[in-house]
């Protein structure tokens, strides 16, 4: 941190708040807020992973929720089959997401622009229907996870506070990884491809290879979020993969600020708190949320991080 800026200060405040939240929850006896924020953190993790391809890589995936489902179903299906160990469930969740991303990415990256948006959407819908067709695992109705992942007593996922800190650690770990990646050789190539693919080809980079690897990294990270989400809700259903869920993730990324490290976290916090808050004051919260999104697009360029950046200069 070289210099003080408004966005850094706000980010630091937000992180401090997230770290201290369980203490507040315990002191005030407000359990609800801990549950709410566990969900927020998991979805922030998903948004951060989407931001890696969308914000840094320029790949507008409209099917990112598929990984939430894949990660979740890996946990749920293994649990149902009697494999309760997190040491198996989580690696399987990540591997399944990575393989799915590899196949989908290899096909989707043949297209660009709107076609890319649509084909990623189509594949996610396919995943959605596959899940709906799994009669053994609940089909449309989804699958209850009766027992949370077991990490041989190292950490107890059924303990709210422990689970919260596990999710927070995963989020921070992923953001740390993204930070390293973005500044690495690989990261510069991927960002260069976003900026000008023709130029990058001309100086000797095979574009697709780098984009595909980035796509797989991002999908794997989101698979982690999926595995956590299934543990959080004790349930997984095709609905987590529905296209509006992918839309939510995109909204979080854009709202917070694409291509910034902490923007997606900020976006997830604001989006989900707003949803929570609005639904408490009016049953018809989306009546406000909808136009708000429109206004943000029209006037809030660069998302929250962009606005904070301007506040700094102005």
């Amino acid at each position: 941190m070289k210099s003080f800026t408004v966005s850094k200060a706000v980010t630091a405040l937000m992180l401090a708040g997230l770290v201290l939240l369980p203490l507040y929850s315990q002191a005030s006896g407000n359990i609800f807020i801990l549950t709410l924020f566990t969900r927020i953190i998991i979805l922030a993790l998903a948004a951060a992973s989407l931001n890696l391809i969308m914000g840094f890589g320029g790949m507008m995936s409209f099917g990112h929720a598929a990984y939430l489902g894949i990660g979740g179903y890996a946990v749920g299906m293994l649990a149902q089959e009697g494999v309760g160990s997190g040491w198996i469930q989580f690696p399987v969740a990540l591997a399944a997401s990575a393989i799915y991303a590899l196949v989908i990415g290899a096909l989707s990256l043949r297209t660009r622009g709107v076609y890319f948006i649509m084909i990623t959407l189509a594949f996610a819908q396919m995943a959605y229907y596959v899940a709906s067709g799994l009669a053994r695992y609940g089909g449309d109705d989804g699958l209850t996870v009766y027992k949370r992942s077991d990490f041989s007593g190292l950490i107890n996922l059924s303990n709210r506070t422990q689970f919260y800190y596990l999710c927070l650690a995963c989020l921070l770990g992923v953001i740390f990884l993204i930070w390293r990646i973005v500044n690495s050789r690989f990261g510069l190539v991927v960002q260069g491809l976003r900026s000008n693919e023709q130029r990058m080809q001309a100086i000797g980079f095979p574009a697709k290879r780098y984009q595909l690897v980035c796509f797989v990294i991002s999908g794997t990270m989101c698979g982690l979020a999926g595995a956590l989400l299934a543990n959080n809700t004790d349930f997984v259903s095709p609905a987590v993969m529905y296209w509006t869920r992918s839309g939510d993730l995109m909204v979080m990324v854009i709202l917070g600020g694409m291509g910034t490290l902490f923007g997606p976290v900020m976006g997830a916090v604001v989006f989900l708190l707003l949803e929570e808050f609005l639904s408490q004051i009016t049953e018809y919260w989306a009546l406000i949320m909808g136009p708000l999104l429109l206004l943000i697009v029209l006037f809030g360029r660069g998302g929250i991080m962009g606005m904070l950046g301007r506040a700094n200069r102005g």
């Binding site: 390293r180 500044n183 690495s184 050789r185 990261g187 510069l188 190539v189 990058m200 100086i203 780098y210």
Partner: peptide, 20 residues
């Protein structure tokens, strides 16, 4: 970046490339 394309692999994910 043009130099990087001709100096070893770019599948390096961790070290800061701007410090090479």
């Amino acid at each position: 970046l043009a130099a990087q394309a001709h100096a070893g692999t770019s599948f390096r994910f961790f070290a800061n490339a701007r410090k090479e």
